[in-house]
């Protein structure tokens, strides 16, 4: 699983050297940003069900998408939000890349699910994050960044 620390350690091991001062700087930088990321992760974990329900409701209430897909959409949005929660914890896009994005297009296409609805739901969630009501500015930046990363991968 890729994270700031494992990336540094893998590189050091490939070269057969001890962690250098620049390796340690990189790890320290990741530790320094960790409290904000964890704040975002905590908020997301506690409101993941509400966030999903609200977003899906907002997207499907327009009557533009087939209602039969609503439950599947809710399930998938919840799943992706969980992966974003993991990314916030590790400080990298590893969990999303390995468990969410690899093979995603193929699966969604095979089930004829509307990616447009997903994108709309994630955009809705992104635009609704309130600072500082939900989380601090840095935490919100990290969270929105990951939502954008996912939206890009879906579109």
């Amino acid at each position: 699983m890729k994270s700031a620390v494992t990336t540094v350690v893998t590189a050091a091991d490939a070269a057969g050297r001890f962690p250098s001062s620049s390796d340690i700087e990189a790890v320290k930088g990741s530790f320094d940003r960790a409290p904000e990321r964890m704040q975002a992760a905590e908020k997301l974990a506690s409101s993941i069900d509400n966030m999903t329900a609200e977003a899906v409701e907002a997207v499907y209430s327009k009557g533009f998408y087939e209602q039969a897909n609503k439950d599947k959409c809710a399930r998938d949005i919840n799943h992706y939000l969980r992966l974003i929660n993991y990314c916030l914890v590790t400080g990298g896009t590893g969990p999303l890349d390995e468990w969410g994005i690899a093979g995603m297009r193929e699966v969604i296409r095979a089930h004829v699910l509307p990616t447009a609805a997903y994108i709309e739901a994630f955009t809705y969630i992104r635009d609704r994050v309130s600072v500082p009501g939900d989380m601090g500015p840095q935490a919100a930046t990290e969270f929105k960044g990951l939502l954008d990363y996912l939206i890009n991968a879906l579109s």
Partner: peptide, 27 residues
């Protein structure tokens, strides 16, 4: 290869649950 963060992620994923306040205490 895992670190403390990804170890928490792997065990949370096995439960299918997000990482909440409880797990974050240790991290």
């Amino acid at each position: 290869m895992l670190d403390a963060f990804s170890r928490a992620v792997v065990s949370a994923d096995a439960k299918g649950a997000p990482i909440g306040s409880g797990e974050l205490v240790a991290l």
